[in-house]
């Protein structure tokens, strides 16, 4: 109960801060939309003559609209803050608080994503009213599963990003590491194209990483591409495994990092 009250207060505070920066929030939202929209534009043109690898124009439209929504709901940015906090000393007063700073970050994520995810959803609904290609089949059961998958994807990306940011306790090149993960993720998570369109060797590499579970899997669940029970089960098992792995990584880096950080400051 105490935790529920704490979180309610933190989310409310984050929501009010975002409200102050309305224009900035809209600009970040636009930034998240343009890249998938450009990919969709190119694939739309390529598939004008006929479906490519089983994807017709409408399939691409639904895929990338789902990418915009899922990406908005699973965005992770905390490493950039953590990197700055560690370098300019702001981490110190956060550590002096009686609460792990990760809770503030989680609350911030909830507030921001409720607002921007809602905006994307409204945008999608409005466009779907006039553009039949972006309508996905009404299937409440599958949507509920997709909601769970999106939540798990957001948690994986968040923990991965947070743990990477905490490496700032040891190195000053965290931003380069983030760039590397972001760049690989463009391909391996299905941002630029559905995974089936990647060369087979790259598909095999993707399957060994957490990237497809953070975007492609929830997207395909939402659009109905991942329809068989085996597909869905495999996706959720993969998500559970990577979630456990990144949670473990976060806990390890956090505990070791604090000891290391204290040793430098002490």
């Amino acid at each position: 109960m105490t935790w529920l009250r704490r979180y309610a207060a933190l989310v409310r505070a984050a929501w009010l801060v975002d409200l102050q920066y309305r224009a900035a929030v809209v600009i970040w939202l636009l930034w998240g939309i343009t890249e998938p929209a450009i990919s969709l534009g190119i694939w739309w043109a390529i598939s004008a003559a006929g479906p490519v690898a089983g994807y017709a124009q409408g399939d691409f439209a639904r895929y990338f609209f789902a990418v915009i929504l899922v990406n908005q709901l699973t965005l992770a940015w905390d490493a950039y803050y953590i990197d700055r906090w560690i370098r300019n000393g702001e981490m110190n007063f956060r550590l002096a608080r009686p609460m792990n700073p990760i809770h503030e970050a989680i609350a911030d994520n909830i507030a921001y994503k409720l607002r921007t995810g809602g905006m994307v959803l409204v945008l999608w609904l409005v466009l779907a009213a006039v553009w039949t290609a972006v309508r996905i089949p009404v299937h409440p059961g599958r949507w509920a599963l997709a909601a769970v998958a999106i939540l798990a994807a957001a948690a994986i990306r968040f923990l991965n990003n947070f743990a990477t940011g905490l490496l700032g306790f040891w190195t000053t090149r965290v931003l380069a590491l983030l760039d590397l993960q972001f760049g690989l993720g463009l391909f391996l998570s299905g941002r630029i194209a559905p995974i089936e369109l990647l060369p087979p060797a790259v598909q095999r590499i993707a399957a060994l990483t957490w990237f497809p579970y953070t975007l492609a899997f929830p997207v395909e669940l939402l659009t109905g591409t991942a329809a068989t029970t085996a597909d869905v089960a495999r996706g959720f098992i993969g998500q559970a495994a990577w979630l456990a792995l990144w949670l473990g990584a976060y806990l390890l880096v956090w505990r070791r990092g604090l000891r290391h950080y204290g040793a430098v400051g002490g």
């Binding site: 102050q20 920066y21 309305r22 224009a23 900035a24 600009i27 970040w28 636009l30 930034w31 939309i33 343009t34 890249e35 450009i38 190119i42």
Partner: peptide, 21 residues
Amino acid sequence: WFVAVENVSVLFDAVYEAARY
């Protein structure tokens, strides 16, 4: 005109992406 637009340069980054092709 609007002071709270500290990330306005992101607007350029977003639109410039289109110039890739």
